[in-house]
Design a protein around this nucleic acid. Sequence first.
DNA 1: GTCTATATAGCGATAGAC
DNA 2: GTCTATCGCTATATAGAC
Lengths: 204, 204
Amino acid sequence: MNAPSVRERMLRVREEAIVDAVNSLLIEKGYEQMTVDEVAALVGIAKASLYKHFPSKEALAAAAMVRTLQRAQAHLAELAMRPVTAFERLRGVLRWIMQMQYDGAMPTLPSENSALRGVLMADKAYGSLLMTVSETLGEWIQQAQHDGDLQAHLPADVVLLTLYARACDPVLPLLKASGQHPRESILEWLEASFFRGIAAPRGP
Amino acid sequence: MNAPSVRERMLRVREEAIVDAVNSLLIEKGYEQMTVDEVAALVGIAKASLYKHFPSKEALAAAAMVRTLQRAQAHLAELAMRPVTAFERLRGVLRWIMQMQYDGAMPTLPSENSALRGVLMADKAYGSLLMTVSETLGEWIQQAQHDGDLQAHLPADVVLLTLYARACDPVLPLLKASGQHPRESILEWLEASFFRGIAAPRGP
DNA sequence: GTCTATATAGCGATAGAC
DNA sequence: GTCTATCGCTATATAGAC
């Protein structure tokens, strides 16, 4: 293959800037309240120019969510290379989710009745990425259960959904917004409550 | 005070029907995707008539959410009369939330970037109700920590938010929608993961 | 208070010049 | 491929008759 031409590279840079803008608006306002006019204004180009790159608002949002999933996948690949237990890898995933959320870099996954949900379910790239990621996580979950680090009686899909749900949990952003606790405390409390719950350990 | 007149009672019945419709549409589609036309159609009256009862779409949603909070408060009052520990009362609250969610009777609390959030924060009735409920729950949380049933090192506001977050957690509806597990299993798994987490109990 | 009909505004998407 | 200007639709909210 030839090296990308100058035109192609400029195109990619421009589209990356667009996806950046979409991403931050998705984080700030969510899909429904994000307007294409705002995206154009944030990128600094006219709305009509946006539509030369992406055919619809839905495609804009899908591109942003696909990029987030790609970054998640890249982080999984890093974790997979570390010589640690499956449990430690899952812990790493949770930390990554929470750090992204804390830093305001994670567009919250669409909950049940969001219009974005329908958009993503119709997007093939998103769907296949999600399947790949889920398979990797599913293997780690089963391994961690086999190692005796996760409760073995919980179905793997329950654990997987519980983990995904941390990406759209309002607790972390609300605690951050309250300004009453330092970052590390918040991350530790939420990690602990994810793995150990909030109840006191039982006596003998 | 005099007994309510026939007119007043009809008014209340009509408005109750409106709130019912709003509630089910909020559950089904969420605030942004719910249209006032749909509400009117579901109630069976003209849209203009709706606006004689409620001044805006925001007021419609707020009324529905206030009623949900009132029902929550009523359930708290029931729980407060039972001769059980604070921990058991909190467990009862969690079960109530999950049962409402499972039965499709709970409009999911608005997460960070929903327009509904701004609506509710501006609503005085909702705000004062929320404060009352939070105070009751806060007392139970502190009592349960004092009893040694909840981890004492977790700040009460973290526990409170974690509990509230169960009301907008997508895990339960997704598990229900998957159709792979019976209702009671789902409720038990989620209750257990809330209090005990998903990790296996530690060693020695 | 209920209706039909309409005003008003915002937004997704497009036309057409350059 | 970028722009300005505009279309077309939908949704909130209101006017005015009964």
